[in-house]
Amino acid sequence: MTGQEYAFVVLALVGTVGAVRLVTAKNVVHAALYLVVTLAMVGSIYLVLGAEFVGWVQILIYVGAIVILFLFGLMLTKAPIGRESLDNQQRGLALLVALAVLAGLVFLIQDAFHWGDRKMNLVHNTTGEVGRSIFQHYVLPFEAVSFILLAALIGAVVLARREERE
């Protein structure tokens, strides 16, 4: 095994433990902190793969902003504690979805790389490459995605305000 593979094994293990603890934790704030561990490990795996830009953006956006927003929401709602209030009793369905996602990802990744036979060629200066591919080749999908996000944002505001008026 190469150093990269050792690093991957360690990161993946820590990330998995974090993910398992995330769903088993009794306290929501602790769960959010386990989520931080998992997301940071995913970012580190991107770094191991040589995707410097994607790795740090992952940490910047997910760890630095999104989980903080979760925490903010939890504090405003007084963070419910205990299994009854946290579990939505849909384990079977969740297991099904998780297995389906796993199968889909395994299929797609082995389809792309043929169990490691096809090697990736590392692109250096990935920041420039990412920028170019987003804003030149994939402008339309990018704009479409941002439009959907905007719609979701406005939708959330509308839903929240309607309750207020009643």
């Binding site: 830009f53 910047l60 630095g64 902003a65 903080i68 920041t127």
Partner: peptide
């Protein structure tokens, strides 16, 4: 290579 992003990522941790 991503100097500023590193700084932003770290300062967002201090929250």
């Amino acid at each position: 290579n991503i100097g500023i992003l590193w700084v932003l990522a770290m300062t967002s941790m201090t929250v």
